[in-house]
């Protein structure tokens, strides 16, 4: 069948700021005012790639929208001597494509490249990924291996929380009513570091990971491992640092590391569940394998 031409009349008007159900602050001051007026009535939308899915066919039930997409300051990436600040509204696409991220935080870049699909990466944001706090959130393990801190703001002020302390359970975190993540602060390491990222799912694209692993090793001047961070996703209620494995990596040269031993520690330390994406047993086996392949990848770098 061919299309009949449909006559659609243009209506005059612009702005989008004329609704009492939809707020799009363009500055932090405006944002704070809105948070003051409507704290617990607001539904915050960042990229929308989780929110619109969760509320499919129920969007009309949302009373008041707070859209962070017009806050340019939340989209900034600032590079200082000792740290990089990533605004919470930076998209996965930008994290994937920006040279500075690739240079300083390659594990974040790789994880961002593995998120969803081009359509999801172009809208979904690092802040959204954090606040949704899914145990399978792709960026979360990578933030923990870089010792990220989160700057949280509210109408009353602001606070800094360690990413390691932010997540409290599946889709749960320390944010209170009216609190937002403004930026992610990543310390810049003076020493040389190498990292790896492994995501395992049933497909390559548009898949919620069955298990994922982020690895970051910092080396001292003698090429010994000065600091080690291993974090596993989808294997516990929150992204899980494997401190026991980290400890046994420290002060060793990478080539002297017993890879199988570290892999076994990771496999033993996680607390996975049986779910639609895999059994606990499967996840333990895969955790073992991906730990080995991640360490091997670092050795080969």
């Amino acid at each position: 069948m061919k299309k009949q031409s449909i006559n659609v009349k243009n209506k005059l008007g612009t702005s989008g700021k004329d609704s009492d159900k939809y707020f799009r602050p363009e500055s932090k001051e405006e944002l704070k005012k809105i948070l003051e007026d409507y704290t617990d009535e607001l539904t915050v939308i960042a990229g929308g790639t989780d929110l619109l899915v969760a509320n499919y066919k129920n969007l009309y039930k949302i009373e008041k929208w707070l859209d962070l997409n017009w806050l340019d300051s939340f989209k900034e990436i600032k590079i200082f001597d000792d740290k990089v600040e990533i605004g919470s509204m930076v998209t996965h696409e930008r994290l994937d494509k920006l040279d500075q991220i690739k240079e300083h935080f390659p594990v974040i870049q790789k994880a961002a490249a593995d998120v969803g699909s081009p359509q999801i990466r172009s809208r979904g944001t690092i802040g959204g990924n954090i606040v949704t706090s899914s145990p399978a959130g792709d960026l979360l393990p990578t933030l923990l291996v870089y010792d990220a801190k989160l700057k949280i703001i509210s109408k009353d002020g602001e606070r800094i929380v360690d990413a390691n302390d932010f997540f409290t359970g599946p889709k749960q975190n320390v944010l209170g009513d009216g609190e937002l993540v403004e930026k992610i602060i990543l310390p810049l390491e003076e020493n040389k570091s190498k990292g790896a990222w492994v995501k395992v799912g049933k497909r390559k694209a548009l898949v919620i990971s069955s298990i994922s692993l982020a690895l970051n090793l910092v080396f001292d001047n003698d090429n010994k491992i000065k600091d080690a961070r291993i974090c596993v996703g989808s294997a516990a209620p929150v992204p899980l640092r494997i401190e026991k494995a980290e400890q046994s990596l420290k002060n060793k040269k990478i080539k002297k590391v017993n890879i199988a031993e570290i892999a076994q520690i990771v496999s033993d330390e996680i607390s996975p569940i049986d779910d639609i994406r895999g059994t606990a047993e499967y996840r333990r086996k895969v955790a073992y394998n991906i730990t080995k392949s991640a360490l091997q990848e670092v050795i080969n770098q």
């Binding site: 609704s19 799009r24 939308i45 990229g47 790639t49 859209d67 359509q119 999801i120 809208r123 548009l206």
Partner: peptide, 29 residues
Amino acid sequence: CGKGECGACTVIMNNKVVASCLVLAAQAD
């Protein structure tokens, strides 16, 4: 699908591919 999984609703918005089912009209102002 209405949930960003299938891509049938893909359009180009400000030179980016987006799933138009996951973007509010207001965000396209």
